[in-house]
Design a protein around this nucleic acid. Structure first.
Lengths: 108, 108
DNA sequence: TTGACAGTTAAGCTTTAGCTTAATAATATA
DNA sequence: TATATTATTAAGCTAAAGCTTAACTGTCAA
């Protein structure tokens, strides 16, 4: 694309590790961009653009304070994700054989 | 791309509604592609390619039977997703104000 | 008022996603 | 053997994701 990504979808928003990281950082409380930047590998524009995606998905809100912009988590839309997981988790964990195989392979 | 998508990442795999749909269909039990096709809007190659992505993410396994290919759910890798949700849900639901706002806005 | 600071926006570029149509592979059946 | 069935692979395309560098905006401070 040439503009900011268009997706306002939570699943999409959460698909990128950098964005998950940002959400995690904001769990401890609101932060200015400079604060987020300390936990973020990448340029300032890249961070700003990822924040743009999260804003579009309504997962964060921005407030201006002096020359800083303070971001805070607005986790409402995550309900769509948690709900999907809740609804289907039962089925998945019911499939114990496959799950067990996975765990053995992964953790020995 | 020119080849199949490269991501073997669960968050990424689950980001596309068609792929979530496929996982949901397979919750009821294994299915041949023709069975999946009935719950899938899109061409046969598109379906096959989405199945390829899920296979790469190890979320499904394929077995041949006559001229059919039977797919079944192997939900192990979904642990990464459910785990992330579990770990962070506490923080999110702690933010009751924002959550409440979201619910009011969404459901009146 | 000039300059530094905090951050975003613009523009351009490369890579990936996801579709399409056409071709291919493998099995079953007449 | 020829043909239909079931599905994948190939090739090509469009659009979106995500980065980069450069330019810009708004605020503060000397």
């Amino acid at each position: 694309m040439n503009r900011l990504p268009a997706h306002s979808d939570v699943f999409q928003a959460v698909a990128h590790p950098a964005r998950r990281r940002i959400l995690e950082l904001l769990e401890a409380g609101e932060l200015p961009v400079s604060g987020l930047a300390r936990g973020f590998r990448g340029s300032a524009p890249a961070l700003s653009q990822q924040l743009g995606v999260l804003k579009k998905a309504r997962l964060v809100r921005e407030r201006r304070e002096g020359r800083q912009r303070i971001y805070r988590l607005t986790p409402g839309p995550l309900l769509e994700l948690t709900n999907w997981v809740e609804v289907h988790k039962g089925f998945w964990s019911g499939k114990l054989e496959a799950l067990g195989q996975y765990l053995r392979r992964k953790h020995g």
